[in-house]
Design a protein around this nucleic acid. Structure first.
Lengths: 274, 274
DNA sequence: CGGCGACTTGAATACTATCAACGTCGGTGG
DNA sequence: CCACCGACGTTGATAGTATTCAAGTCGCCG
């Protein structure tokens, strides 16, 4: 079943829509090359119904995917068959980057709702970078952003308590919704408790309990998948575990200095020394 | 001492070595452009002493770094000043990618031992991609590899027990050492228990206890930072938590197939023997 | 030698997972 | 139309694992 599922992308519901380069750039929030409109390359849209896979693990890689509408999840499957949710892509997100390295996809992307996806052949992608210098930087930038996102994910997974994880998950989701023009305070979760738990490194019961607790506290109101954020600020600053105990010598010095100005452009020093 | 630090990279210990493009490509394990030797671009080496920072959080981004020798860590600093270790780069690894997106570094790289680092100005990097199509793909590939690595890190952090995390950390480290030509069985940890714990999402006590337990079991021998892997296979297949309960419908089919061949790797009973 | 940082080890505590039962919703078929 | 069913969700009791707190050792550098 999985064997031919990936190929369906090509002919299932032939995209009745096409986008030009400018539209794609807007979607990705990157500047479109000024000298556009000359070549007018077009990119095909493909529709996926909820539950369908955009790409599967091990599948040959040759195209990237840009989400035009809908909600998805990307997952890893471990040696026991359990799935690990890596992200919940939505409009404007780029999928498939993980396949570039080995030319096979390392993860799987599944539609959580009906989706409209734009196909971006990797060859075209690469060629565009060589043609337009600005575009090349934008492409590196998008990949860099993805990397930074995953890094902060790692930090969150290993340092935060269950409550803090769920709180941050909700506020992040809210921010993404509002950036898309939807309400950032009141929205509908497209994923199950199990998927949220997998994403956050928690069990579905813990997720459910935490949501209930937030509801009791008045931080949110929750009814099944309908969520309203009532006290975003409290959610953002909610923490439990980090008692600021674990700090290396070096860090102590830094934090002491930082305390005075706290400005972003703080440059480091070198010798710890002694 | 701290005030003028980051800029020192440019002139501290002026690199007495330079590398050409071919050497850099070899280091990164990417194919060098065939038509080389014509331009003969050179890349400067810079030395850092243990404890020095290659780049710091918030610092302006304009160059990438390639590790030629030495061991480092990259860290994130949270709002309380505690550090979160993200990776332990060594020879052949590329640093600084996280800065491309915002043009400011999102993480900090610290030398754990004396290091020899090659500077790769981002402008040069980008220009090379536009000049040589093969190189462009290689660059995307390196970034993609980094992304995949972080994804598997996320999977490990959220799904594995403390013992499994430490076991995988050791075997991964061993593999990296042997790829570099060193012994993969016997090596010296360049980082503290605290840094390992931060990297794995554990406390330093748990790391220490787990190492001691592995030592008792005869899986490794450990004396401070001197490690010998005695039973690599057992370490690789060591798991505790995943009782293969959490699976989606679709995934169940997959695991049915997996069950035939891969099931035997469930041991961990050996551990209980103590 | 004193002191500090790294490491180890031992309790006690706390958090999260696990197991289990029940409630809800939506779809299907009798 | 209603009963049944399965997937999803909630909640409680219990068990386990990892953290926290607390000594205490070892090795190194001033």
């Amino acid at each position: 079943m999985a064997s031919h599922g990936n190929q369906e992308a090509g002919w299932r519901c032939h995209g009745n829509l096409w986008s030009n380069l400018r539209e794609v750039c807007d979607l990705l929030h990157i500047p479109a090359p000024a000298v556009s409109a000359d070549e007018e390359v077009l990119f095909q849209h493909v529709r996926f119904k909820a539950g369908q896979r955009i790409h599967t693990i091990g599948q040959n890689f040759d195209t990237l995917y840009i989400v035009n509408s809908g909600f998805l999840k990307t997952v890893l499957i471990d040696e026991y068959g359990n799935e690990q949710v890596l992200s919940f892509p939505m409009k404007g997100d780029l999928l498939g980057i993980d396949g570039i390295h080995s030319l096979h996809h390392a993860s799987e992307a599944v539609a959580l709702s009906d989706c409209d996806i734009i196909l971006m052949p990797y060859k075209t992608f690469a060629a565009l970078g060589r043609s337009y210098a600005e575009l090349e930087h934008a492409m590196f930038s998008v990949m860099s952003r993805e990397l930074v996102r995953e890094q902060s994910m790692i930090g969150m997974l290993s340092a935060l308590s269950a409550e803090a994880k769920v709180a941050r998950f909700l506020t992040n989701l809210g921010e993404r919704f509002s950036q898309l023009g939807y309400s950032g305070k009141s929205f509908n979760l497209r994923m199950t408790r199990h998927e949220i738990g997998s994403y956050l490194g928690l069990t579905l019961e813990t997720v459910s309990r935490t949501l209930s607790a937030f509801n009791e506290m008045g931080l949110i109101s929750v009814d099944q998948r309908e969520i309203s954020l009532l006290d975003t600020n409290a959610l953002k600053t909610l923490r439990r575990l980090p008692p600021a105990k674990a700090r290396s010598k070096v860090t102590d010095k830094v934090s002491a200095l930082v305390g005075k100005k706290l400005l972003p452009t703080w440059n480091a020093e070198a010798a710890v020394a002694a």
